[in-house]
Write a protein that binds this DNA or RNA. Sequence first.
RNA 1: GAGCCGCUAGCUCAGCUGGUAGAGCAUCUGCCUUUUAAGCAGGUGGUCCGGGGUUCGAGCCCCCGGCGGCUCACCA
Length: 505
Amino acid sequence: MEDSSVEEITEELAEKLNDEHVRRLARLKSLSDEGLKPYPNDFTPNITSAEVTGRYEKLTAEALAALTESFSLAGRIMAKRDFGKASFIHIQDRDGRLQGYVKKDVVGEEAFAQFKKFDIGDIVGLEGTLFRTRTGELTVEVKTIRLLTKGLHSLPEKWHGLKDVEARYRQRYLDLMVNPGVKDVFIKRTKIIRYLREYLTNRSYLEVETPMLQSVYGGAAAKPFTTHHNTLGMDLFLRIAPELYLKRLIVAGFERVFEINRNFRNEGISTQHNPEFTMIEFYEAYATYEDLMDLTEDMVCGLVEELHGTLKITYQGEELDFSRPWQRISVRDAIIKYAEADEAVFTDKAKAAALAESLEIPLHKDVSHGKILIEIFEKVGEPEFKRPTFVTGYPLEVSPLARKNESDPSIVDRFEVFIMGKEIANAFSELNDSVDQRERFNGQLAEREAGDDEAHPMDMEYVQALEYGMPPTAGEGIGVDRLVMLLTDSPSIRDVILFPLLRKV
RNA sequence: GAGCCGCUAGCUCAGCUGGUAGAGCAUCUGCCUUUUAAGCAGGUGGUCCGGGGUUCGAGCCCCCGGCGGCUCACCA
């Protein structure tokens, strides 16, 4: 029972594995044969490396020598420098690294002989007191050290780390283990999400969860993933957005709800797109899209300041200034300005189509006027908005869930936020007129039949919910991954998703 | 989906005009009780992404395929 988990190294096995793997298995076997439990779970550290550094880094060598307190730490051996009868190791735990000094005449002959069989990559538990080395490094003088888990592979190189991009994604644990900074990105990601959650919670928003498996998908223009429920014998979609369910909850009377969760869109993969990505969507009754502009500025600026201590940050070598007020421009003005378009394109669909053609924008047959305009905007306008910009005045036809503008019925009360040329947020005053909503869905059906397979599907149950009365409401979605990219200076969405989707090997 | 680039030891990378595989780190042996990319001396380690082809001979040239990155297209 003692070593049942330690494999015998047969010739057949050794042939399959590389030399290092075989050597480490042999060491584990040998330690186990000497009576060491190979995978113990009875070691409890009482401090972490960062806590040690935080508390004792400033103490002089003399002050440390006077200290009698003993500490126990656990972590992975990241470096080992042997000196015959002594050795320096660095162990890494969740919040940092700390050096340990293992001396034969301190730990004893037998323990030292065992320690010699420990390798870089092994997880150990150690106990000892603190001292400062001649070169000034705060170090644990190790009194006892135990193997907690054997590592059977050598770690990536100590100096260059793990560079191979594919390996970094497929074996993210190695990336996180050996590449400095990667952990920080994901810690920041968590802080960002926590900030957003607290910000809305403090404004009396209720965090909810709505279905990811849906029999009718909606809330965005995108192609869905399909799946199947065996017992119900029913095909289902993975949601492309939570929108229609969150608004049902506004009908229900929650008045302020939000959800932070994954959406799934069956479309291209790029540095800006992962098939599953995280959105925060929030809905507030008795608010308008203009209220949400203020909220967005306030929330994002607060976040940037909390994370960076300033509103001026650097993204990929360019300065990015979040200072308020953010620039505002309408789709119409952006097209006039950046496409140098004639006003007639807004009233004359043929002229809009001609402009699109001159910009080499491919359009399918029977495309709506509004869709043409938005395509033109995306081509010429989007890349221009480096600093945070609210774009308003979206065409009705591309906004089937948004409230019509009162003075211009060809547009809706909607904005998107662009930063560094990328869409970060999308918000609007919600359409709460059920009759209008039904007509808009019918319009989308026509678009679908005309060949737009991302047109919004009809959702009669949603219309029925609106019929019971949804208070005037404004709602917004923010692409969390993209926000994290900006705030962690990451060029690819895969840098901010722990396990991005890859083809299977 | 298209174009370009990449894939060589566990990791980071060299490899000329086609001539039979190399370095550093890791690892092994020896020396070494305050080092930190420890040091010194000497070793081991390869499905050169896979499959075909050309050639006396292919890591290198040609064809097919795989995986990844970037750009473009679609999308957030």
